[in-house]
Each structure stands twice: as C-alpha cells, then as structure tokens.
C-alpha cells in the first residue's frame, strides 16, 4: 500500500497515457506524443550515463542514428525480417557502444566530453559522406513499420503509439530497478567522486562501461523505433544539435532523476510543436533556460518537486516535534 502511494503520480500518468488516444481523433497529436516517447527512451540513456554516473556523453545522437540506420539498412537493403533486424540493430549499436566506451572511458571529465563530442561528429560525417551505404544527404526512405506480432499489427498511428508506450514503460521500470539497486548507488558514488568510489572498492572503469553501454543500448532502441515510426531518416538525426536537444530534455526534466526524462521530453516536445512558429527559434528561450536551470535548479523539474516535497515533509515533522516538546513541558 505504501509503495502504491509512493508511485501514485507515475501511475496516474500512465493511465492518462493509456487513455490519451481514446480522447483525441487528431492523428497529429498522437504522432507528436509518440515521437516524444521515442526521444524519452533515448534521453533515459543519456540520463543514466550523465545524470547518475556523471559522465557527459555527447555522442548520444550518434548512437541513436546508428540504431536507426542499422534498422533501416537491414530492412530496406538487406530485406531482413523486421523483428530480427530490430534485434540486430540493438546488437550492432551495443557492440559499437562497447568499443567506443572501452576507449572513451579511459579519458575523464572534460576530455571525455570532448572525446565523445568528436566521436559523435565522426559518426555524423561518416553517415553524411558514405553515400553508397547510407544514402548520404538524401537519407533512407521507405523503412517499413514494425511487423505484426501474431494478430497484433502496427500499421496505424495508434498501434504504434501503444507499441512505443510499452517500450517506454519497460525502460522506466528497468531504470527504476537499476537506479534503486546497489548498482545505481555505485553509479552515484562514481558521480560524486571517482577517487572515493575507488577507495571503497568499486571497479569504476567496469561500472562506467556498463552504464555507458546501457546508455548506448537505449539510444539504439530509440533510434530503431524512430526509424520504423517516422519511416524516413537523414544524417541530421546524428548531428550534435540532436545530442544537445536530448541534453536539454534531460536537464529540464531533471538530470539524475527517475522521471526527469519523461517529464522534460514530453513538456518540451509538446511545447515546441504547439508553438510551431518557434520551431527554428526555440533555442532563444531554451538556451538561456538551460543556463538558468544549471545555475539555480540543477536537478530540473522533477528534482525541484522532490526537494519541495521533502522540505514540506521535514517542516511537518518539525512542527509535530515542536508540539510534542511543548506538551511534555520541555527539558
């Protein structure tokens, strides 16, 4: 019962998400929310390695694109059955992620950020220039929708919506167990001080690598879903700006919080889509917002909310203690 109460907000949120398509006939709204769900999965990856483990990986859009292109190329050019291609895309992204992680994580802090930024740019350049494989600037067209699983087909917007919602919920549940386990605490320990973590016997390289690989896996998962949902991909999805977008979603929602990525992504994607005229100029507002958030609210909306709740609970407790002490006449 206590657990249920604690999870009240997320459960209400899930209920709204489940019922949402029943209340709107507008395909466009469903499309936007689905897109936000996909991005949220990728942002979870960034949140894990950046927010929990404290390693700012700026190659995230690159891995997102690798997942998307792997799925696209396997289904369009190689005619691999969809779900097999889907699994292969995840494997490919994770393997590349592991290789990059093995080398990248030997560098620390600023070097790591710069290194991954460059890795991301290399991925972008390769996708852009390797015309024969990736279609270069024209991109890949006509990627198929997810294939039917038994009687369930995914050829409509609503069915895709539920499919992606399932993946998102699985991601959140996985993250909940991961971050609340000893492993999650290990990551936070590394974020707070890598040297200290080492002195209490944590193999920081191994833990950082695992966290990085999971993060690339989630980026690849989001990428693969994106490719089959939007059905067209271009080199833009691997560009640095995409990484910065992910970063912004994470920061606004709350870097290093469990529900930050969903909150941030949904809020900003819906906000920018509903203010269409802002599409190109959204950074006029979001750029300074990012700066203000890291200065004043480094833990974002969710972190701020948690802080407020904790303060309130503390004050309540203080008050009852105060009353208690007067009742007993003090000491």
């Amino acid at each position: 019962m206590q657990g249920l109460k604690k999870m009240r907000m997320p459960l209400i949120f899930l209920l709204v998400a489940l019922l949402f398509p029943l209340f709107t006939d507008n395909q466009y709204y469903i499309y936007v929310v689905t897109l936000a769900f996909i991005y949220a999965i990728a942002v979870y990856g960034m949140n894990l390695v950046g927010g929990y483990t404290g390693q700012l990986s700026l190659a995230h859009a690159g891995f997102f694109a690798i997942g998307a292109y792997a799925l696209g190329l396997l289904t369009v050019d190689a005619n691999v059955p969809y779900w097999l291609a889907f699994v292969l895309a995840l494997v490919i992204t994770t393997v590349i992620g592991t290789l990059v992680g093995l080398i990248a994580l030997r560098t620390k802090e600023h070097f790591f950020a710069i290194y991954t930024l460059c890795v991301g740019y290399i991925i972008y350049l390769i996708i852009y220039e390797w015309d024969a494989l990736t279609g270069g600037v024209r991109g890949l067209i006509g990627i198929e929708s997810p294939a039917a699983i038994g009687p369930i087909t995914f050829d409509t917007g609503i069915s895709n919506y539920y499919l992606i919602l399932v993946f998102l919920v699985l991601t959140v549940i996985f993250m909940k167990f991961l971050t609340e386990s000893i492993v999650g605490r290990t990551y936070v320990a590394i974020r707070n001080s890598e040297e200290l973590a080492q002195t209490i016997g944590i193999n920081t390289m191994k833990q950082k690598l695992i966290s990085f690989v999971i993060s690339t896996f989630l980026a690849g998962l989001a990428g693969a879903l994106y490719a089959s949902f939007v059905r067209f991909i271009g080199p833009d999805i691997s560009y640095t700006m995409m990484t910065f977008d992910f970063l912004m979603y994470a920061i606004v929602g709350g870097f290093g919080t469990l529900f930050g990525p969903v909150v941030g992504t949904l809020l900003i994607v819906i906000l920018t889509q509903s203010l269409q005229f802002m599409e190109d100029f959204r950074m006029i507002i979001f750029g300074p917002l990012l700066v203000l958030l890291v200065i004043f609210y480094p833990r974002g909306i969710v972190g701020g909310y948690q802080m407020w709740k904790m303060k309130r609970a503390y004050k309540k407790k203080q008050r009852s203690v105060d009353q208690g002490s007067t009742y007993e006449g003090g000491d």
Partner: peptide
C-alpha cells in the same frame, strides 16, 4: 551544459 546553452542561444 551552461556553455552549450549559451552556444544554442547565440546561434539562434
């Protein structure tokens, strides 16, 4: 992160 925020702002 703050530097990235400034970058995005100035460019836009």
């Amino acid at each position: 992160i703050a530097a990235i925020g400034i970058l995005l702002f100035l460019e836009t």
